[in-house]
Amino acid sequence: MSALRRRIRAANGEGRAALVAYLPVGYPSAPGSVAAMVASVEAGADVVEIGVPYSDPGMDGPVIQQAVDVAVRAGIGMRDVLTAVEAVAEAGAVPVVMSYWNPIERYGVDRFAADLAAAGGAGAITPDLIPDEAGPWLAASDAHDLDRVFLVAPSSTDARLRSTAAACRGFVYAASTMGVTGTRATVSDAAERLVARTRAAARDVPVCVGLGVSNADQAAEVAGFADGVIVGSAFVRALLDAGDERAGADAAGRLAGELAEGVRRRARVAP
């Protein structure tokens, strides 16, 4: 049974959406990023997306680029990521790794799956890997009983929504807008349509929404139609604006607390 799905459904059972917090490993430092992840968990994040730094993050906007650039230059690698996975599991949230494909391929797909499972990770989100190219990852994640999360987008055809959702385990990541990561003033109404279309295609797999959610009000709005709310750039922004590592972890915790209130604010429409 998928650890991600179990946790998201448990939140849904409380009449709310799950809160998924993204934080990249290695910003402001490896321990600093782990401290921010743990603070987010303690303040109410159900799932932590543990970001693997990558030199060419084509789906990310300037905020996340700025942070991962520091981590890349510091030489942060998969071993640091696995340390963060263990810390998040220890803190009581479900850890899921978020990685562009090349760092995983370079580490070795089977080795990655084995080490991730051993560290207590639930699985991985792969923003630039579509199921069509994912043969080795599908096999490795099956072999190690890991979740695998692929993305769907407003431009996805119904046929692709079906095939992508069928390849997903844990949840389906609905990229709410056409664009890169970053905070936005409003949540696109495309998000709600995409979630409805994905639900129709996915049936039983939870659908979480990412891209553009940054505050409690937006979280509450998305919680009204999605199974989980993913927040990334707003957490990274909080770290970038903080004076030091301690202040960064505190800021991440405060934001997680506000968002956790947001995902509980509005009565959730039963799926």
Binding site: M59, D128, S156, M178
Partner: peptide, 10 residues
């Protein structure tokens, strides 16, 4: 092959 975000596949 194609190693791209799903948003570009269409």
């Amino acid at each position: 092959g194609r190693f791209v975000p799903e948003a570009l596949v269409a």
